[in-house]
Computed example of a mutant assay.
Amino acid sequence: MTARGKKISQADIALRADVSISTVSRALGGAQRISPVVRERVRRIAEELGYSERERALPARMPEAEIKTVVYLPMHPVTGGLHPIFQETYDGMVAAAAENGLQLFPKLIPEEDLDLDFVTRQAEAHGTATAFMFYVDPIPEVARFFQENGSLVLVNNVDTKMRFDSVIVDNYAGMKLATQAMLDAGHRRLLFVAGNLRYSPRERMRGFFDAVSECPDANGEQLVIGHDRHETALEYFKRYFGEHESWDWTGMVCGNDLMAIGTMQAARENGLTVPDDFSVIGFDDISWSAMTAPRLDTIRYDRIGMAEEAIRLLRRRIEKPDAPVIKAVQGVTYTAGGSIRRIGSGIAT
């Protein structure tokens, strides 16, 4: 009790210690994942304020969830489901959240419906202005809401204005690796296929053209088909192969696996064979890529690691609201399959 008889709460301690209430709860409750310096500061301030032993013992019974967090996930416009990449990343986030005291409230909605009204309704319904946002660029009104009211971490996207923390794959390096795999197999006439020209596809395109420019006798072209979906690539290249008897490129470098798989299906439906008639490489190494015949060559990155890093960034932002913005980048590796034919040998790499 204070001199005026006011009961000391964890909010009072959090204010003095300059940390979040959840940090106070974890520090006093004996949670493992907390800095010893922060733990000691919280306990010292609690003692100075006269936080009672009975009250101090209460946080040891850890709450069901320390941080309530809304997760905004873009809905696939055709199937109404979740993009395989986002599904695998979100699954990793669910597992990591259970270990880090987060309660997730996933919201699968069309991207165009993610407006200020929807966000404020979710914040009120779940009692939190803390969120993860997958892939989507927050519109200005939504960005201001999180800047003024809460914490937001972008997943599989970045904020080029450096307002929000983010975690993303190294798109540039990954596409240089993919293009180099084609070049190493002897291909010199390459086509880069993008669904759209958002940040990630632009970075992948940049990696493609830089790799091509470093090979003196290579030539690269780009094609933007509108959407980075399996269905879009399937329909586009069904028409393309039906209307063309030949083409100028020998290798297709796709902006993601879904477009690569759609292209392979379009080739099959037009009597063509990958990699005999042309070679293909994707990006993402989604689970479907191991099921194609032949197995798709692609670029892999750790989606579980991305989810864990996103949670780490969110906890840091809550505990240190004024900390510098972090853009965390996940590394990549090349996954060999059988969809690239070595020029001159007739053998797929």
Rank of each mutant, 00 (worst) to 15 (best):
I225V: 00
I225D: 01
G226Y: 00
G226W: 00
G226F: 00
G226H: 01
H227A: 13
H227S: 13
D228P: 14
D228C: 09
D228H: 12
D228N: 13
R229V: 05
H230S: 02
E231V: 05
E231A: 11
E231Q: 03
A233Q: 01
A233M: 01
A233Y: 00
L234M: 04
E235F: 05
Y236G: 04
Y236M: 08
Y236N: 01
K238T: 13
R239S: 06
R239H: 11
Y240R: 03
F241E: 01
E243W: 09
E245N: 15
W247D: 08
D248N: 14
D248P: 05
W249M: 14
W249Q: 14
T250E: 10
G251Y: 10
G251H: 06
G251T: 10
M252I: 15
C254P: 01
C254D: 08
C254K: 10
G255N: 05
G255D: 11
G255I: 02
G255R: 04
N256S: 09
N256A: 12
N256E: 09
N256R: 07
D257R: 00
L258E: 15
L258R: 12
L258Y: 12
M259P: 02
M259F: 02
A260P: 10
A260I: 03
G262P: 11
G262K: 06
M264H: 09
M264K: 09
M264S: 09
A266S: 09
A266L: 10
A266G: 07
R268E: 15
E269V: 08
N270W: 12
G271L: 01
G271T: 00
L272I: 02
L272P: 01
L272Y: 08
L272T: 02
L272H: 03
T273N: 14
V274I: 05
V274S: 01
P275L: 05
D276R: 13
D277S: 10
F278T: 08
F278A: 06
S279A: 09
V280D: 06
V280Q: 02
V280N: 08
I281P: 11
I281E: 13
G282H: 05
G282W: 02
F283N: 09
F283A: 11
D284N: 07
D285M: 07
I286A: 11
I286V: 11
I286N: 10
S287F: 14
W288R: 15
W288Q: 15
A290E: 14
M291H: 13
M291N: 13
